[in-house]
Amino acid sequence: MAGFDKRVGSYREAMEGIEDGMTLLAGGFGLCGIPENLIAEIKRRGTRDLTVVSNNCGIDGFGLGVLLEDRQIRKMVASYVGENALFEQQLLNGELEVVLTPQGSLAEKLRAGGAGIPAFFTASGYGTPIAEGKDVRYFNDRPYILEEAIQGDVAIVKGWKADWYGNVIYRHTARNFNPMVASAGKLTIVEVEEIVKPGELDPAQIHTPGVYVDRVIRGEFEKRIEKRTLRD
């Protein structure tokens, strides 16, 4: 029993083991489904020279954007980084390196990283600047480029509910990159809104099985909305 109990009692304990220079994978799409308290703990720790892999880099003052304030990110791998003035400034100053990756390829790189597949061929990006230097092969007369998998030293994930064993379910579109990120980390930490006893989640409805998860912590979430849009 205790061997599968992944619960930890504090954010300090949850992020134990993250070190300068590591590759950090973070779930979320925009500000939806981001591990906001785990990010805040990394800011508090002052961990530096991080390579961060996430679809976006938050906004000024929230999400991964807070890690830019003390220059904790050295390199960012993302598909879209448009909502952040500090990001732009550090990029133009040469303080921050950016690798832009098509969104679908980024998701698949993380999926492959978690699934033990070192690389895959995709048509996405063929003939564009992101294909430069990548191997090209033809299948059925169509060109594809070779994209390599991504694995992380640490993965931070936002779930909705988890049980003690680290089985996780996500809520609505807050799922996004979280399951792939969870699978591709050597050390995977999941923060959730509710932790339930083993047996309370339907085994057939689990999105991320506990085998991928090392630690689970319950948090309180602001869930900031980036573009609040209502119908008339």
Partner: peptide
């Protein structure tokens, strides 16, 4: 400023 391709290439 290059903001990224998002999902457009896919």
């Amino acid at each position: 400023m290059v903001k990224g391709m998002g999902g457009a290439m896919d």
